[in-house]
Amino acid sequence: MKESEIVSVISRKLVPYILIFGLYLISYGHLSPGGGFQGGVVLASGIILLALARGTDSAQKLFPEKNLRIVEAKAFFLFLFMGIGGLVAGGYFLQNFLPLGKAGEVPSAGFIFFLNLIIGLKVSAGISLICFYLLKGE
């Protein structure tokens, strides 16, 4: 298939903004609409746009498949360790053991901010890994 100049240029200029918007949705998830899952899917859709417009090989230079697999596996164990941290602090499983802070600031709500980050990274790595595997054969 022949590469189109318009698709290539537009996707290169659009992808950084999509990634920034996904990070905004993740990191402001406890203050405004959004959250881990939604922000992660937006991040993954940015990566998929790069893979569709420029080919999977050039997308895998920026986001190597090995790193995505590592993030996918390690984020799950980080989630479990955050849960066990509640037990260590003397409560129940998945208890909010960090200080809550003042409501309305970005690093507030202790535990929820970090869980949003972990879930966002995990969802984006998983969905972009699925699409890499599906698009690679063509």
Partner: peptide
């Protein structure tokens, strides 16, 4: 976004 890409693939 994602479901359309997966369906077309």
């Amino acid at each position: 976004g994602v479901a359309t890409v997966i369906f077309i693939a």
